[in-house]
Design a protein around this nucleic acid. Structure first.
Length: 583
RNA sequence: GCGCCUGUAGCUCAAUUGGAUAGAGCAACGGCCUUCUAAGCCGUCGGUUGCAGGUUCGAGCCCUGCCAGGCGUACCA
């Protein structure tokens, strides 16, 4: 619809240019927006305001000229000029009902697939395997997952990359400790809680010089490919990854083992990366380290800031492995676009790495590289989320608390449910509340984590959306109607304002997903679903479905309800959130 | 020091990237259940968008200068 109106306006502009009413120079692209206020129609463009000055005309005169030159279109019922010179478009009722029927009959809910599908590499989650996943990993994991799912739904090829931290000096310490533990039973018990294991290893490292020495030796052995070391390292990582996948499983995150490609995978590439930088003439030696200096970045003394790719002792850094990863993703994975869902604090790092990768030719000039940074999750005091004693909060503990709180709430509201269903509902409500609370905030801003708020049934929360979905499910259950048996070709009748509002919103699913995919901001999808659920609740209160007088009205409303349910379910699925038939 | 980000209702968050009267939820107050789940709906109240200038038809958004906070800034990731 949007494209169609833009097309018509372009035609009018071309006509006016040919006529000499408007100057022949190219004009800015026509922007068409959904209006916030229904009295301004369904769509509005400000093009007349933009063209007034170059044309030497009053904005409203330009608008009038455009409207007069506008070709007829059955989808547009009315065009008005308003305010300083906005052109408002009202869509025809028939267009609305036709589009709805098309969406109803479409598995894909009327959402068009990308005309030019891309291969998009999405780098997300990427925990450090030396420790257990903590709350700091939540945002990357679920935001990245939601965007990956959305891109896939829109027809792109998504390659997930879980760039886990499985390499580095802290592994020497862990392996030394692993090696020391003779008692297998005790070992597996300790490994079941990686956080304790890490702490214990760190303790040994700090207390015993011999242990520290052994740890450092193991790092060297590991890097030189010692078999014994590699086995210890591999075993440790397997245990740690198992922890990660338990969390992914609970969270409903779509990452699979084959998506894991950790830092160590790029180890063999690192010397070549440095060699290629050298060949490209980008390398400078400074204070013993090999660096790339970029003019646009300065350090604290106003001197050029280096991107260090090889330390004075010969070791490599995370910039090096990120460069290797970029090269691999662009060249081996054939990425058109690479998205990094990594903490906002690494913004400078990514700017540098992207710049170096371009200069070195690791990626093509048109490879779209984007750091999708995000803010921090804070506690009630506005400071980074910590336990009462100041420690980091393990992700599993957070999820367990969410489920426990959800269980208490659901039990209170609906005590007659049997235990199995009760637990299932509590699980879905608890997990989705945590995920949704995060996803519904703008990616780049910090936010305050609050259990009571996210588990509330009021406002922009997961429980509210889940409840809206169960209301639709309940209608069909009550009526004994199997949605699959609905005659989707039956005509729709939209009379009540709540019906029109709901229908209009239902048709905006695709454009919402488009924006989520472009900007990597799932909160727009959340806002959309919240509006949709609200529009449905309003419709539900004001427009009786099953008890409607005429069968045409009843059928029409059932269709609206059915498309609402499917859209809610699909939208939540793209956020990685399951739905419930009852709660 | 330099760079990046943030500052919106008492609280938690939005605002279609420069559009029309800055919107939701919570909290407060008031209505609506013999009728599809009231875990809901409808309404009232609440604002000098940190401050001061500027740009233009039009600024929460862009520019300049302040104020307050956060983060980053050479061998950790």
């Amino acid at each position: 619809m949007k494209e169609q109106i833009i097309q018509r306006v372009e035609e009018a502009l071309a006509h006016l240019r040919a006529q000499g009413t408007l100057p022949a120079q190219p004009c800015p692209p026509v922007q068409l927006e959904r209006t916030r206020d229904k009295s301004h129609g369904d769509f509005a463009t400000n093009i007349a305001l933009l063209l007034a000055k170059p044309a030497g005309m009053k904005p409203r005169d330009v608008a009038t000229a455009i409207v007069d030159a506008l070709p007829a279109d059955a989808a547009i019922s009315k065009v008005e000029i308003a305010g300083p010179g906005f052109i408002n478009f009202f869509q025809a009722g028939a267009f609305l009902t036709d589009s709805l029927s098309a969406a109803l009959a479409d598995e894909h809910l009327g959402v068009p697939r990308a005309a030019a599908p891309q291969t998009v590499v999405v780098d997300y989650s990427s925990p450090n395997l030396a420790k257990e996943m903590h709350v700091g990993h939540l945002r990357s994991t679920i935001i990245g997952d939601a965007v990956a799912r959305t891109l896939e739904f829109l027809g792109h090829t998504v390659v997930r990359q879980n760039h886990v931290g499985d390499w580095g000096t802290q592994f020497g310490m862990l392996l030394a400790y692993l090696e020391e533990q003779q008692d297998q039973a005790e070992l597996s018990a300790e490994l079941s809680d990686l956080e304790n294991f890490y702490r214990a290893a760190k303790q040994r490292f700090d207390d015993s010089p011999e242990f520290a020495e052994r740890a450092r030796a193991l790092v060297v052995q590991l890097q030189s490919g010692d078999i014994h070391c590699l086995k210890l390292w591999h075993d440790f990582n397997q245990v740690s990854l198992r922890h990660c996948f338990e969390v992914y499983e609970r969270l409903g995150v779509s990452l699979r083992p084959e998506d894991v490609r950790g830092e160590s995978a790029y180890n063999p590439d690192l010397p070549y990366v440095v060699a290629e930088l050298d060949k490209a003439g980008l390398l400078t030696e400074s204070e013993g380290a090999r660096c790339v200096f970029l003019d646009e970045f300065k350090n604290k003394d106003g001197e050029p800031l280096p991107v260090i790719v090889q330390k004075a002792d010969g070791g490599y850094l995370y910039a090096t492995s990120d460069l290797a990863a970029l090269r691999y993703r662009a060249q081996k994975l054939g990425a058109d676009r690479i998205l990094y869902f990594v903490d906002q604090r690494q913004a400078l790092h990514f700017q540098q790495v992207f710049q170096v990768a371009r200069l070195a030719g690791f990626v093509t000039p048109k490879t779209d590289l984007a750091h999708m940074g995000f803010g921090t999750m804070n506690g009630p005091d506005g400071r980074p989320f910590k336990t009462r004693t100041g420690g980091t909060v393990k992700l599993v503990d957070l999820l367990t608390e969410a489920e426990d709180r959800a269980l208490a709430l659901v039990q209170g509201k609906n005590p007659e449910l049997d235990a199995e269903e009760l637990f299932n509902i509590a699980r879905v409500v608890g997990i989705s509340a945590v995920k949704y609370a995060d996803l519904s905030k703008h990616r780049t801003s910090d936010y305050i984590f609050n259990f009571d708020q996210m588990l509330s049934f009021e406002g922009n929360t997961a429980p509210y959306l889940l409840y809206a979905y169960t209301r639709v499910a309940s209608v069909f259950r009550k009526a004994g109607i199997e949605p699959a048996t609905l005659d989707l070709s039956a005509p729709l009748a939209l009379d009540a304002e709540q019906e029109v509002a709901l229908a209009t919103l239902l048709l905006q699913f695709g454009e919402t997903l488009q924006q989520v995919a472009e900007k990597g901001v799932p909160h727009l999808l959340c806002a959309y679903l919240y509006n949709l659920a609200g529009a449905f609740s309003s419709f539900y209160e004001h427009c009786p479905i099953l008890t409607a007088q005429q069968t045409e009205v009843r059928d029409s409303r059932l269709h609206l309800a059915w498309l609402t349910a499917r859209t809610l379910k699909q939208g939540l699925a793209l956020l990685g959130i399951a739905t419930l038939e009852r709660m």
